[in-house]
Nucleic acid binder design. Sequence first.
DNA 1: CGGTTGCCCTGGGGGC
DNA 2: TGCCCCCAGGGCAACC
Length: 287
Amino acid sequence: MPELPEVETVRRGIAPHLEGARIIRFEARRADLRTPLPRHLAARVTGRRVLAVRRRAKYLLIDLEAPRTGKGAPTGAPEVMIIHLGMSGRLLVGPDNGAPPGPHEHIAFATDRGTEIRFSDPRRFGVLDLLPSDAFSADKRFAPLGPEPLAPEFDAAYLEQALAGSRTTIKAALLDQHRLAGVGNIYACEALFQAGISPRRQAGTVRGERAARLVAAIKDVLARAIAAGGSSARDYVQASGEAGWFQHAWAVYDREGTPCPGCDCGRGVRRIVQGGRSTFYCASRQR
DNA sequence: CGGTTGCCCTGGGGGC
DNA sequence: TGCCCCCAGGGCAACC
């Protein structure tokens, strides 16, 4: 369930292996994940040097240097490889030793440093795309995205304005990537719990002190998850390891019926369905 | 136009 | 025991 913190953890895990390295082999074992892979993907990527590994919302962005001739003259444009992990996607890093791929390891590529990265995605909700770097900011997936939750410009004033007049629930509004980019179902539940705000509250009524509390909770929940992911980075960098985020202990997410960790109301954590997705919360503590 | 619903996909778990 | 149904997740198109 990779949301922003998990994607950021993956970014930090693969960046040292990729930045400055050259892709010397690229294999796609099928032509699509959730969407078709770009045409001639392997040919377009092989031989390219990686300039940087970035993240925007839940997307990994791998900047590729323009292809060059043997004498170093550019023969094309810089491009950015876009990876979305969907719900079951993982990037496994290991030595390029020719080990046979597992059944769900759909894509593998190797660098001139002897490292291989495999994209494993059993449910194939992931996306891999490639586009010219100068087309990135106008791309319809990225242009409408709201601010990064951990950026300074995401503050109480911004949130209040982004929610002003909205009649949908605050839970649904937090999942709207156009208002705020990178928060998913788990961290929306956790942040609302920490802020003491009911997921059923009308979004437009989150103002003033409530908005400030919610902003602080979102930043804190995400930052703590990133810190926890960093400590378990070893686990997913090794091909045999389980993804670190499956071991997180949530306060309310997926804890229906357990005692509320924030108060002694005795009612326990409730599960409701909003917009077709599960919401977990404490009806006493969250108003 | 804001808001909601359904679809994409498949492993796994629960229920019968 | 075995089978079927449904759920989980994010993003987007279609719809009201």
